[in-house]
């Protein structure tokens, strides 16, 4: 379980994340939704020790993220942020191989290679595995980075807007993969998502943030309701049930 205890982050006088106390349940897919500037990515960065907290503490399976050695955490929790600019020339396979660094510190074993091959298969990167990253499209690169995180094989997988740049087919494939990782491998997947229909369809638990605070949280069906969503996004959102799934409509 990921537990945040009164976590805050201030830039100057502005509180971007304001006193957030939150339990993210283990095993399952949790989506964090909310309008721009709600503090979703900032919270995720603090949970994954990429950003120092101004106040509060975060534990992952009881390990305090600020005091636990980085390489110990790297075998338990992985994080992928949105912008991954790389100036070095790296092939897709080598990039995914870096996911094994926490386990083997750069010397790949047979087991590492099987993890890498599996990650390449999962993300449908077989044909691209020997290409250099700077020769790929934004969506292909995004999938390569997700494959790296999968090869890291951690119990907790945190992804900041993983569907960015992906077409419908690959976006759906990505979410199915996360769903499968949670249900079959018992992983805890935490996603920051902008598309509430993806959140509705694939997640077990939804946390909605607004203005740096947690505005609402609960199992997905309880969150995808017109009153809850309209309140969070400050716009008129209707919810329809289509084929047993809750779908939000907010166009026009």
């Amino acid at each position: 379980m990921i537990r945040t205890q009164a976590v805050s982050r201030a830039y100057g006088d502005t509180l971007v994340v304001d006193n957030v106390t939150l339990d993210i349940p283990a095993c399952g897919v949790t989506s964090i939704i909310g309008p721009n500037g709600a503090g979703k990515s900032t919270l995720l960065s603090m949970v994954s020790r990429l950003l120092d907290m101004s106040a509060g503490s975060v534990t992952v399976d009881g390990l305090d993220v600020t005091s636990t050695p980085s390489d110990v955490l790297a075998r338990r929790l992985s994080i992928l942020r949105q912008d991954n600019h790389i100036s070095a020339r790296i092939t897709v396979r080598d990039l995914i191989g870096f996911g094994r660094y926490p386990h083997s510190k750069g010397r790949l074993t047979v087991e590492d290679r099987s993890h890498i091959d599996k990650a390449i298969d999962y993300l449908d990167l077989g044909a691209l595995s020997d290409r250099f990253l700077d020769e790929l499209s934004g969506g292909q690169r995004q999938r390569a980075f997700v494959a790296m995180v999968l090869a890291q094989d951690t119990d907790y997988v945190l992804l900041d807007e993983p569907l960015n740049n992906l077409d419908m087919k690959h976006a759906m494939g990505m979410m199915k993969l996360m769903r499968q990782a949670a249900s079959e491998l018992g992983k805890t997947v935490v996603l920051v998502l902008h598309d509430i229909n993806f959140a509705s369809w694939y997640s077990d638990y939804i946390v909605a943030m607004k203005g740096g605070k947690v505005a609402a949280q609960g199992p997905a069906p309880e969150m995808i309701r017109p009153d809850v969503l309209s309140e969070i996004y400050e716009m008129d959102i209707k919810v329809h049930e289509i084929g047993g799934q809750l779908i939000s409509v907010y166009y026009g």
Partner: peptide, 22 residues
């Protein structure tokens, strides 16, 4: 430091994610 240097190529965030004491 060679293995850690290679990981630094991926940028600060990815290096920390992979457990390099950045």
């Amino acid at each position: 430091l060679l293995p850690a240097l290679d990981v630094l190529n991926l940028g600060r965030d990815n290096a920390i994610n992979l457990g390099v004491a950045y």
